[in-house]
Simulated scan of single mutants.
Amino acid sequence: MTYQTLADDNQFKFKCPIFNAETKMATCVKLRNLVWKGLTPEKRRGCQACMSAGKCPAAQIVQKMAMSGPRSMQPDDYGSTAPVLGKLRRDILERIRPVMVMSSTIQRLSLSSIEVNMIETANERIEAMLGSAPGASSKSKASIKGKARKPRDLSSPSTEPKQKTMSKVEQAAASGDLSAAL
Rank of each mutant, 00 (worst) to 15 (best):
P57S: 00
E124N: 12
P75M: 10
P70W: 08
K87C: 08
D77T: 07
K147C: 14
V116L: 05
V99K: 10
M129E: 11
D77P: 04
K55I: 01
A122L: 00
M166N: 13
S112R: 01
K141G: 08
K145G: 14
S167I: 07
K30W: 07
E170N: 07
K139T: 11
L130K: 07
S156A: 15
L111A: 01
A172H: 07
A142E: 12
V29S: 01
S155C: 10
M65R: 06
M100D: 15
M65N: 00
A128M: 05
E42F: 12
G79E: 00
A49Y: 02
M100F: 14
N33C: 06
A66W: 04
G146F: 10
N20H: 10
R45D: 05
E127T: 14
F12V: 00
I18R: 06
S137G: 08
R125H: 01
R89S: 01
K43M: 09
E127M: 12
P157E: 15
A49C: 02
A59V: 01
K164Y: 11
L154R: 14
R97S: 09
D9W: 06
T121M: 04
V169W: 13
K15T: 09
D91C: 05
M100C: 09
G79H: 04
L88D: 03
K64Q: 12
A136N: 08
A122S: 12
M73Y: 09
P41W: 05
V99M: 00
R97C: 02
A26I: 07
G135Q: 14
E127N: 12
R32G: 07
R90I: 02
A21L: 11
T159H: 13
L182K: 15
P157I: 15
P98Y: 08
R71M: 14
M25E: 00
K162A: 15
S156E: 15
K43E: 02
M65G: 03
T40C: 11
R89G: 05
R149W: 13
V116Y: 01
E127H: 11
P75S: 13
E94V: 05
K145F: 14
N33S: 08
T40F: 08
V29C: 06
K162N: 13
R125V: 01
T81Y: 09
E120W: 07
K43V: 10
I106K: 06
G79A: 01
S113K: 12
R71Y: 13
K141F: 10
R44P: 02
P70N: 10
K30E: 05
S104Y: 12
A59C: 08
I61A: 03
C50A: 05
C28N: 06
L31A: 06
G79V: 07
N10R: 01
K15L: 06
